[in-house]
């Protein structure tokens, strides 16, 4: 059963220079027990689409979608109050900067127990017990003492573990991890990713992993969705995506992985993601695409069928091998 189903989600920000479309017609679907990775460069609208779903965007954002349902609830109809009953409990989120994501003025214990207090019918002793349990679950030694610690007394990895414990406090059905390892050391990154995948297996929750690191994707995800400039450009199971990327952007991203480089110089994608003022006509990736021709620059590309990874491209790559 589809746990989260989002169709044609768009997010526009009101800015001084006019409206800016950060997310442009994105579909996201996640089943229980599923790990979906959303990949893309900075500015591709990965985080914004998730924050839009959680209702965490500022009031300058206008959110539209044909469908946005979670566990059978239509998120579009919820009042702010009703939505607050869902987020933090059934659907929770961890963020990129663990060190600044915890409130420096309150102890770790207070912050974990606060979630329990508002969502769960537990007394003080039960909350304490559950908080200790949670810290144990995320692999923090000496949990009773750690509950009394303040965030500044902990390392980044430890803080991210606390964030995970907090997110898991009410046994969510869906966990959104927004670049959970970007700010951490490489060794700690692997530990946190292992922790996340283990917890996902244990609890059977769905996990959405937002990242710009293809290495992270390969290690953890089951399905990958590639976003570019606010659009979904490709979606495939992780193995197929690495074997046969269909969108030139995906292919270029994969080529830029040091592990896959064949030449002395690491291939790069020239240019940057278009911003508010330099959005091209036609295909958004065309200015940076080495296969682009006049048609790409003039006409918005169609979405290809599923066997071509739903690629949003006029000339999907690796098409032949797939057809054979």
């Amino acid at each position: 059963m589809t746990l989260l189903n989002i169709k044609n989600l768009s997010v526009e920000f009101e800015t001084a220079g006019g409206a800016f479309r950060a997310v442009d017609g994105v579909d996201i679907a996640v089943d229980e027990n599923d790990i979906l990775a959303i990949v893309g460069e900075s500015g591709s609208g990965k985080s914004v689409s998730m924050l839009a779903m959680m209702g965490l965007l500022p009031w300058t954002a206008t959110i539209t979608a044909d469908e946005m349902s979670f566990d059978g609830i239509d998120l579009r109809d919820l009042s702010a109050k009703q939505r607050r009953k869902v987020i933090g409990r059934d659907m929770s989120m961890i963020f990129q900067e663990p060190m600044s994501s915890l409130n420096p003025c309150f102890t770790v214990g207070f912050q974990i127990k606060e979630t329990l207090r508002i969502h769960m019918d537990m007394d003080r002793a039960q909350r304490q017990k559950r908080a200790v349990e949670l810290l144990e679950l995320v692999g923090i030694p000496d949990p009773e003492r750690r509950l009394k610690a303040f965030p500044h007394q902990m390392s980044g990895g430890m803080s991210q573990r606390v964030m995970i414990a907090m997110a898991l406090a009410c046994k969510p059905r869906l966990l959104i991890a927004d670049e959970p390892t970007t700010a951490l050391d490489v060794t700690i990154q692997a530990q946190i990713l292992d922790l996340l995948t283990d917890l996902q297996k244990e609890t059977g929750m769905a996990l959405i992993l937002i990242t710009h690191d293809m290495g992270v994707v390969a290690e953890t995800a089951q399905r990958v969705q590639v976003q570019y400039a606010g659009q979904k450009v490709e979606e495939q199971p992780v193995r197929d995506l690495f074997a046969h990327p269909h969108h030139p952007y995906t292919a270029a991203l994969l080529d830029a992985l040091p592990e896959r480089a064949t030449e002395r110089h690491l291939p790069t994608i020239p240019g940057v993601v278009p911003g508010q003022y330099d959005r091209p006509q036609g295909c958004l990736f065309s200015p940076r695409c080495k296969f682009a021709d006049d048609k790409c620059r003039a006409v918005s590309p169609p979405v290809q069928p599923r066997d071509l990874g739903l690629a949003r491209c006029h000339y999907p790559v690796n098409a032949k091998e797939d057809a054979v």
């Binding site: 607050r84 869902v86 987020i87 508002i118």
Partner: peptide
Amino acid sequence: RTARAKGLA
């Protein structure tokens, strides 16, 4: 943002 993501009023 974390506090709001927890579902706090």
